[in-house]
Computed example of a mutant assay.
Amino acid sequence: MRVVVTGAGGAVGRHVADRLAHNDAITELVGIDLQPGHGIVPLDLRSDDLGQVLQKDDVVVHLAASPLDFAGDDDAGSNDLEILDRLLTATRLAEAGHLVLASSSMVYGAWPENPVPLAETEPVRPNPEFRFAVARAEMEARSQAWAADTGAALTILRAATTLARGRENGLANLLRHSAAIRNADGEAPAQFLHAEDFATAVELIVVGHHDGIYNVAPDGWLRPAELAALRGTPDTQVRIPGFAVSAVSAARRRFGAQTHPGLTAYLQHPWAVANDSLKALGWSPEFSNEEAYVAGHRPSRFDGVTAKRRQELALGAAGAAIAGGGLGLAALVRWLWRRP
């Protein structure tokens, strides 16, 4: 079996490539990434000829993704869509046999009526304010159209937030910094997947020739209080009313914070996923949510800030954002005064 892995030099891609390289069922492994490295073919997926590395009946594992830079929200994910289109065209011409697409559990969207956990049968309806999730849903749709047209196998892996040991990724950073502002109207349970567990899932799918859609997540999830403890944030910290959270996030972002107002729903409403379908194939996660989180996060500058100072900073940002947005600081003060 010949396998091509895009993004093989990334934090997650290295785990996947290493796992596949040591499986005897795989006779040839070709890693693709922008930067050269051991066993990696340096290719720019945006411009280079992808046909030079693809062959008939290949299994193509598509992990490559643009760095999460939300300076231009309208463009978030557009590069990934362009790359996917080029890859789908190249795989069609080469008559590749199987595409494994790395997607995100964010495609389900974070909605108050979501069941916990979400199964693969739930509809895809990402929150429109967060373009990354919207782009991932579009990538799935385009891949499904490709599979229907070519007759090739397609596997979509909807992974929870994935972390590699000692490496922080853009999405995890964005979630962590955005979550510094606690929402009084509710907080979502969180899931963190270790990159090694994602790699074993890919290996199972590739070697077992499994197609379909599978959630990839650890067992269970972290409750808000548990996540706060891991972050070193007291669960007694003052929360900000829901109507102000997006404005606060936008204000912090204007001053350079790695936050995004489009994540407000994902921090408030549930989007944790079930892993039963993948476990039914024989997969089992080795790492817990807690272990994955600790492995993939470095201490932030807020870890040394007292709880009182965190509250002062949060309330100060809320006041500035609300005043600037015309919502009125008085509304926030009255709300805080009425809190039991």
Rank of each mutant, 00 (worst) to 15 (best):
N289Y: 00
W221L: 02
T155N: 02
A102D: 03
S105K: 12
D44E: 06
G232D: 00
R131E: 05
Q311C: 15
V116R: 06
S66L: 11
D57K: 13
T162H: 05
T121Y: 06
S78R: 15
G10D: 01
G72L: 12
R92C: 03
P67T: 03
P67W: 04
R301I: 13
E28N: 10
A280M: 14
A90D: 07
S103Q: 06
R125H: 03
Q311V: 15
L99R: 10
A164M: 01
A199W: 07
Q311R: 15
R136D: 10
H269R: 08
R131G: 04
W146R: 01
A141G: 10
S47H: 15
T89M: 11
A172I: 08
R86N: 00
M106R: 08
R223Y: 07
H297Y: 04
G31W: 11
P123T: 12
V207F: 08
Q52A: 15
P42C: 06
V134P: 01
L45H: 01
A65M: 11
I322G: 10
R339M: 15
V206M: 04
S246F: 09
D211Y: 05
V207G: 04
A76Q: 11
L315P: 11
S178Y: 00
R19H: 07
A133Y: 09
P234S: 04
I26H: 08
A190V: 06
D303E: 10
R339W: 12
V16Q: 12
R298S: 09
P340G: 12
D211N: 06
N215D: 02
T200N: 09
A323M: 12
A247I: 07
A195Q: 04
P224M: 08
A153D: 13
L88Y: 00
G328W: 09
L336D: 13
R239E: 13
T121A: 11
F243K: 02
R92D: 03
A102P: 08
T233S: 03
Q268P: 01
H22A: 15
G10W: 04
R223C: 01
A64P: 13
N114V: 13
R46G: 15
V116L: 05
G7T: 06
V4Y: 04
L329D: 13
L87S: 09
Q35P: 03
A141Y: 10
L29V: 00
G316A: 08
A317C: 14
P112H: 06
A295L: 02
V238C: 10
L87T: 10
G282V: 01
A119L: 13
R223E: 11
R142L: 10
V53I: 05
A184F: 06
L93T: 15
E291F: 07
N127I: 00
L63P: 02
I322R: 11
